[in-house]
Design a protein around this nucleic acid. Structure first.
Lengths: 249, 249
DNA sequence: CGGCGCCTTGAGGTACGTCAACGAAAGTGG
DNA sequence: CCACTTTCGTTGACGTACCTCAAGGCGCCG
């Protein structure tokens, strides 16, 4: 179904766990992960800091709101969404998380998660207990860990810039461009964007209505700029998308 | 002039430096800073990790775009703005930084700063070299440092949620509410918001036009909801602002 | 086949952006 | 100290892009 992003081959829920030493060497996110600069002995020590690698199916929760924030996660494969619920009951799809991204860090501010994170496809994620952060620094994973944190910050800033753009086409184009950059960094084909989320979620995330998003995608499809698949979008003429998103850094 | 936020008493630029041990004990951000949980001997060790406390005047640069990203900063006093410039030449005021906030972390992703950060008032900031992060973890500042990072992430998410709201009044109200929360956390009077930035910068930050911002503030002023000062806003009827910002978590 | 999400398409109103003129404040130089 | 310039903020008129409300396809599953 989703040939672009690595997906979990296991099929069960929370109880499945893999030791990182088994998998870091062959991890699809190796090049962007904390483990990038490590080898041999250091990888073994890293294993002590990553207590479980969780395997999730579509709609499985990685963590839910008000769970204790004693751990954060790195996406290994698949796609996740983070949802925040306001006191008024509104839901906001704050982030989509692709492989190599750090998830759930903000829980350290209050000790509890302030959002829920859900798998949109069959996915895997590495769990890092925050009490082990110090150890990760001392075994030489500090640079890579800082880079993960910094990239999360960088992603947010790009998101914010994109949301400041009021034109719907610009926002959607910006979202596509940012996603293409992520895919390129991961070594995947950037012209096929895996979009396992619903239109509703995507519209919510972009601060647009479902109708507006639908209209723009329809327009681009008719113009031959994109090709809409069931759960992905193929970019046929990247230049036109790029010119709509010139506002991004 | 600005009685609300602590400002630097020194008057010179980059060359002034204060050792943290002199100042952490009396730092206005003590309660929200990395140093919060430390005392005596640990504070001394912290001193080795914070190489200079910089004193800046209005319009002084904390760092500029493409500076080496070997350090980040914690605001001690005053207010900063971060500006990103797009290839197309557009400027985006991505963040405003108040005391206790971590600044410049995203540079770790690429090794260079991707934005410039400027003091909006007389300000001070602690410089933390990233190569010292590991040491901060080992001397017991890990929880506090993680909290700073997590709060930065939390701030971004709140910002993003606020920008998803398309109504101008809701966005401005949301900005005010978020700022009031920050001031409350710092122990300041949350009803007087220090806004040392220009209207242009604020509008840019909120993804609105100058005119739109001006109209909303004028409307609220006429309605007696706020009182506009030269570089601050007094919230007279908080309830009305809060109802406009119910979309925030 | 019928029901139900999920997405698309349509018509109409409104809020924000754009353009433009005005006004106020701050810095400059004589 | 005062005219000048420049920057910044306010106010107004108008068009347009998006939101709202509503109806209509389309795939999925029973």
């Amino acid at each position: 179904m989703n040939m672009v992003l690595p997906t979990a081959s296991g099929r069960s829920g929370d109880s499945t766990s893999i030791t990182p030493t088994d998998h870091c060497a062959v991890c699809p996110t190796r090049q962007v992960c904390t483990a990038r600069d490590l080898d041999g002995e250091l990888l073994d020590r890293l294993a002590e800091c990553i207590d479980t690698t969780r395997v999730l199916q579509r709609n499985d929760l990685l963590y839910r709101i008000s769970d204790p924030g004693d751990a954060c996660y790195v996406v290994r494969s698949g796609v996740f969404k983070s949802v925040t619920v306001t006191p008024a009951g509104e839901e906001y799809v704050t982030r989509f998380h692709y492989p190599g991204e750090l998830v759930g860090l903000s829980a350290q501010a209050t000790g509890k998660h302030t959002d829920s994170t859900v798998a949109l496809t069959a996915s895997t994620a590495c769990r890092i207990q925050t009490r082990d952060f110090g150890r990760l620094f001392t075994i030489g994973a500090d640079n890579a860990l800082l880079r993960l944190i910094a990239e999360a910050d960088d992603n947010s800033r790009n998101l914010e810039i994109n949301l400041r753009q009021s034109r719907a086409e610009a926002r959607i184009a910006g979202f596509f461009i940012l996603l293409m950059r992520k895919l390129t960094r991961l070594g995947y084909d950037p012209s096929v964007l895996p979009l396992p989320m619903s239109r509703t979620d995507l519209a919510n995330h972009l601060g647009l209505t479902l109708e507006c998003l639908s209209r723009v995608l329809g327009k681009w499809k008719r113009a031959g700029v994109i090709k809409l698949e069931k759960s992905s979008v193929e970019i046929l003429r990247q230049a036109e998308i790029a010119t709509l998103a010139i506002h991004l850094p």
